[in-house]
Design a protein around this nucleic acid. Structure first.
Lengths: 154, 154
DNA sequence: TATTTTGGTTGCATTTTACTACTTATTTTG
DNA sequence: CAAAATAAGTAGTAAAATGCAACCAAAATA
């Protein structure tokens, strides 16, 4: 019995998130979609993924509404897979992951692909967890509020 | 031939990051470690993961220096798996993932576990990608600088 | 000393993944 | 318009990952 995908009722949202995009390929597909890929064959060639696996991943991403399958082409049979808002909302996750990869596993040969913003042309700074006033938070600064009651600022 | 873990030279740092933590269990183990789990049996019970798989994942996370295996206990055979700096640095990734899960896959029954910071007691705001001046960036605002030359701000 | 806990290991059944070849419908080209 | 090429899958098979349960030895505990 491989993979426990079944537990969609895990109380932890990290687990539920990983259920949808927690396998090796899904986030790479989303990344590729963010880079502009839309067609089945684009994904297939750029990722070097097996076709049957790609079919499975794409349809699962469509099911979970990370992507939507759009029928382009005059009489059916040309499709595009486009990011939904839910899919685009993975942007901070992927940027954070990219930065982590760049920091801790730089590619031996070449310099990392730098993400820049169009307005300023400057590199995108590291994604941080900030508090309500914009101050950086580390792991030790936070806790999980189990009972989740409303609280005033201290 | 399952899983293409082999390509550690993928030029994309997202792919390299996913090689280390891109499977279903690894990020959950890191999450659990962030919640305070340290012992083999803690992880095993809390995650409900098979023991042989846990052995494999833990040793791989140790290899990639996301965790370190510390010998506690007087004469060997009591161990703790603790986050390294590299592991703790996954904090933004996990927070972003958690928030994504909360937003798009709220758990039907109960309210989400809220992350708060010790100082203010307030919920941790959503993780965002910001530009150098602290303005939020969306997916459409950024591009990948392939040739990666130095540039002035525009 | 006897028992329990910890941190595994081993064997086997099931599920995923990968690779390759094949298929059908739709464009594109000649 | 016919032929070739492309797009988007299917299908079959082999290899690998996963899950489960049973087993094991060292250390801690009673």
């Amino acid at each position: 019995m491989a993979k426990k995908r079944i537990q969609n009722d895990d109380p932890c949202s990290v687990a539920r998130a990983l259920q949808e995009v927690g396998d090796w390929w899904s986030l790479l597909i989303v990344r590729q979609a963010m880079f502009g890929s839309r067609r089945f064959s684009d994904f297939q060639q750029q990722l070097g993924i097996a076709r049957n696996i790609l079919v499975d991943r794409l349809s699962r991403l469509v099911e979970t509404e990370v992507l939507k399958k759009v029928d382009v082409g005059e009489s059916g049979r040309r499709y595009e897979y486009r990011l939904t808002e839910k899919g685009r909302d993975l942007f901070p996750v992927l940027v954070a992951l990219r930065q982590w990869g760049d920091r801790w596993n730089p590619c031996p040969g070449q310099p990392p692909l730098v993400l820049r913003d169009h307005r300023s042309g400057q590199p995108v700074p590291r994604v941080q967890v900030l508090d309500a006033r914009g101050r950086p938070l580390e792991l030790v600064d936070v806790y999980v509020d189990e009972d989740n009651s409303q609280q005033d600022a201290g």
